[in-house]
Write a protein that binds this DNA or RNA. Sequence first.
DNA 1: AATGAATGAGTCTTCATTCAT
DNA 2: GATGAATGAAGACTCATTCAT
Lengths: 208, 208, 208, 208
Amino acid sequence: MSTARTGVVPTRQRGRDRVEALIEAGAHVFAGRGFHAATMTEIAEAASTAIGSLYRFFPTKELLADAVFGRYADAMLLELDALSERAPRLDPAALAEALVECMMQQRPYRDAAVALADERDDGPMLRLRLRASIRDKVGHVLAATGLPAAQAARMAPMVLQAMKAVPFLLREGLDRQATLAEAKRMIGTYIAGSMPAPGGTACAEAGS
Amino acid sequence: MSTARTGVVPTRQRGRDRVEALIEAGAHVFAGRGFHAATMTEIAEAASTAIGSLYRFFPTKELLADAVFGRYADAMLLELDALSERAPRLDPAALAEALVECMMQQRPYRDAAVALADERDDGPMLRLRLRASIRDKVGHVLAATGLPAAQAARMAPMVLQAMKAVPFLLREGLDRQATLAEAKRMIGTYIAGSMPAPGGTACAEAGS
Amino acid sequence: MSTARTGVVPTRQRGRDRVEALIEAGAHVFAGRGFHAATMTEIAEAASTAIGSLYRFFPTKELLADAVFGRYADAMLLELDALSERAPRLDPAALAEALVECMMQQRPYRDAAVALADERDDGPMLRLRLRASIRDKVGHVLAATGLPAAQAARMAPMVLQAMKAVPFLLREGLDRQATLAEAKRMIGTYIAGSMPAPGGTACAEAGS
Amino acid sequence: MSTARTGVVPTRQRGRDRVEALIEAGAHVFAGRGFHAATMTEIAEAASTAIGSLYRFFPTKELLADAVFGRYADAMLLELDALSERAPRLDPAALAEALVECMMQQRPYRDAAVALADERDDGPMLRLRLRASIRDKVGHVLAATGLPAAQAARMAPMVLQAMKAVPFLLREGLDRQATLAEAKRMIGTYIAGSMPAPGGTACAEAGS
DNA sequence: AATGAATGAGTCTTCATTCAT
DNA sequence: GATGAATGAAGACTCATTCAT
């Protein structure tokens, strides 16, 4: 914790490329095997680097995982930011669609992020914090559609879980079309059912 | 012949007790650390047994995991069976409530099952098969409320994911009440929104 | 060494049968896998006994091996004794044939004995002693044909090795007929070439 | 892919030295204890290396054994090649002497090879194949002295066994001089007795 | 800087042997 | 006497991490 080097930050282009390759390789391997089963050697090989070079930039497996997850989180946060501007003009179904698509977009990092999120231990807290901010941002997006902020915050975790469910289920071999459609529908009705309901109070009857 | 050992089946009471203790200990440790990070040594210790005894009954970590998951699956299947009889008399919200409670009940094994389900590899297929049957059963339950069978089958995976989300989120430290409520609400609206809708067709507008 | 129990000597018929079965099972497994790779559990199973019973009669794997080897040695010694009486009337070729057949006869125990003899460590010396007496006996047999005792004693080890070579080579998949024939021929010429040579001195010219 | 790893091939001098030390240590320990009783830990210690380094180059005990046996086989094959050129000019006794010496020369590896050859299982076939080629080569050598090829091939296994007998018997504590002499004599008479016999047909009277 | 070698704690697993019923 | 359970030391092997060139 006090020794926690962050790894060398590359200055030359060569180094930056290498870091890029390493993160990508890490994402690939983490996605395929999960954090624990992934080995640093395998990752180095996937990046066509020597193990020593990997450790130069990422002195710890955890740190590499953080970097990978960070990539995902950054992109996600950006997309969600953009989405929260469009949100007021979207109906629940469209918003749900946008959210799911948002997750589906993060191609190389998304699956790794799901795998890392499913780990039981969260290393040095970083990933937990990042996940919390994504959750918050999802809350903002929901709030932007007209939901009360508190309500949106309560809903965000479940919405995020539903979003995560898609890559998870695809990995299990379920049909892509159907899975996407159902996820969107689930999130859509969830949001719709939570709306302050200007006109039709009929549908939203749940809540504790 | 040697690869397919199932482990000794205990014939004496002493052995049966030990197997029980081992499965429970396994559930505990798997729940806490996940499959890969859990060590057989720790599990044996948690069961107050020598490592050799653990291996007598479960010659492989995989096999122990299967036993643990099997416990969960058996109980779950039973509960869902029971539920599918009550289902016709339940409205969506009540059904959602029942489903979530159903998962919450499986106390010692539930968390382990969630952890094991999140593993990237599924060992010898058994867990995958069990998961598939749970999914099917959830589909039956949904169908019992009046949903068309095909529709119910499409929905089951997402419903199950939403159910799994609860223990997952609780583990992250979220508020229990709120999480339970939101999960139930999400599932409830999802079901409600999928109903053939005898009167008001307004709500069910499945996407794509 | 001081704790070296010899195992219970069975008094009832039941026990004697069991011991028999155990030794036979031991021979079978030792022959198949060698001493180290053979497991006591496997042997007990092969004898349809519980592991506890095996240990009742043979408190140690070594002791079981000794018993197995003892069976072979006893039978061998007996046969060689018989042979040493016929020996004076046999020419070298016939004697060689008899010696090889003598080893081939000890069916269930022969292969186990070969396997045990090939072990690098010889446990509590017993096997070494037995081997020495077999060697001596072979020397006697050779001497009985007219070879000087000292010469016979020098030759015995190699003759025995050549005899052992047969089961060894058969195990490697060589042709049975050819292997037997060659072994007999090798031993036969070896003996013939060592004869005091009453008439024809031509052939035996070797020796340091 | 993962089962067939051959171990890293060292690129630097340091690595090459270590591999050398490991093979030598392996030979030593295998010779002393046999394959099964030898432990990788002991071998690593004998080579003054960390266990991890041993596994870097030899990911399996089998692979190390193969390397050790390979060393022996290579040297042996070379010597036999050389011998088969001298063979036509040697009488049976001289050839027998050369063969035995040939085996005795392979100092550090010979004993290990004998120990490994006596194992009940032959791992990944490699050792078996190597043994077969040595056998073939011995056959060539024999043929080079004027024996018919088929006859030579039939004899090779027994000759090899007799050669192997020497280190085996020395290990049992027999007298070196006498053992060497008898082995040479046995092989010598065996060869002599198989010769097409230009003049005296008296001696070669193969059985069966 | 980069590469490949070195390290060793830690993991799963086996098995001879001992106990308790 | 017999049976099956219990024990734990030991062994093969892995892999994150550190070093030396």
